[in-house]
Amino acid sequence: MMVDASRKAISDAPPSDADAARTMRLGTGTSLVILLLLLVAPLLVKNFIVFQLTTVLIYGIAILALNILTGGSGQFSLGQSAFYALGAYTSAILIEHAGVNYALTLPISGIVCFAAGFLFGLPALRLSGVYLALATFALAVATPQLLKLGALEPWTGGVQGLVVDKPDAPFGLPVSQDAWLYYFTLAIAVAIYIASVNLLSSRSGRAMMAIRDNEIAASAMGINVALYKTLTFGVSAAITGIAGGLGAIAVQFVAPDSFTIQLAIALFLGMVVGGVGWLPGSLVGAAFIVFIPNVAESISKGLSGAVFGVLLLVVIFLVPDGARQVAQACRSVIGRRKG
């Protein structure tokens, strides 16, 4: 399964590169250029596009979370929409029913989702490969029905969902609500990205990757496989939950039917397009899943699925490592020019 991909990634890396996490991120210079572009982007475009860019960042965080799970520890999940939904509902309920400040709801969503992910990770421990994909697929399919449960209706608003107020920029800053939300999301996304890169290059990250590459060898080296697998599930769910909370604030609305299997599939596809295990690819994947359906839908209604699917097939047949492969190709071309 993942072994092939990772072995390839390892053999592609220059032999002197002892730091395995190096292949998972960009160099500092490139990162700063991208950050600069992200910082000035909202100044150049209309408010609606700023909102879309915010969505890209939010999905980028969710895909990053999936990337940690799949690229880091080699576990699959088609059920990320469940944790996204849990995070979104936690934030929405805290804001609307408890009057908590929106920024403070995000860590709470993260903690709630960490617990949920850790618990789901326990049975998932015994599953691998297609079985884990199946269990998480079922989780994603069941999520909307669980959210519609009559017993939870006083909090969740049932089928109707909940409306969330859009926050204003604080301290009277002269920026629009959309722009403020964009920078707020960007700050969180950058923090999560840096934390994830550090996590993956830490002792824990190496343990995860050892499990991904060979579970039996990893446990022989004294890695607590069960603990690290469930922890990774928990961390991934927590980050997805934060993305979900941000999503609820940005869209100003949560309802069960926003969190169907389609969302889980989109996140999974975003990861594949961006390149599994390559964290910067998450942003590329997110842009793919936000903009491609829009473009397709503007051509013909109902076409988005087909365009999505065909492009995905193109990716897996022609560039199986996604955006990572494209980036590597570019780098080698530039390298040849210089040399």
Partner: peptide, 30 residues
């Protein structure tokens, strides 16, 4: 679709099935 993917990792196959899912669903709707 799947003959060429026979040697590919599970993840790629999974993506292939999901692509097929999206295409058929959308084409039927069209």
């Amino acid at each position: 679709l799947f003959r060429p993917l026979a040697k590919a990792p599970i993840l790629t196959n999974l993506a292939g099935f999901l692509a097929l899912f999206a295409i058929i669903n959308s084409v039927a709707g069209l």
